[in-house]
């Protein structure tokens, strides 16, 4: 099992798919994707992991910023 839960592994799989786009664009697209397809609890955990200082791609940090105000409580 991933130490930090599956969400970080899954989001990193997504981030590389958007690597061809500028970071802001990519973050917005990824945030939209997560909003559309991920259970809120998973988004919440992603944000929490980033907030807890997980070692992630800078784009993931931006994604977490975009998600955090919108993520409902699990």
């Amino acid at each position: 099992m991933d130490e930090l839960g599956p969400e970080l592994r899954m989001v990193s799989d997504i981030v590389v798919q958007f690597a061809h786009r500028p970071a802001d664009d990519a973050a917005a697209a990824i945030a939209a994707h997560l909003t559309r397809f991920w259970h809120p609890r998973m988004r919440h955990r992603l944000v929490a992991a980033v907030d807890a200082g997980a070692d992630v791609d800078p784009v993931v940090v931006r994604v977490a910023r975009m998600l955090s105000p919108a993520v409902p409580a699990p």
Binding site: P6, R36, F37
Partner: peptide, 9 residues
């Protein structure tokens, strides 16, 4: 109005 869990989730 929010997505649920997928099988792996």
């Amino acid at each position: 109005d929010e997505p649920g869990l997928r099988i792996p989730n």
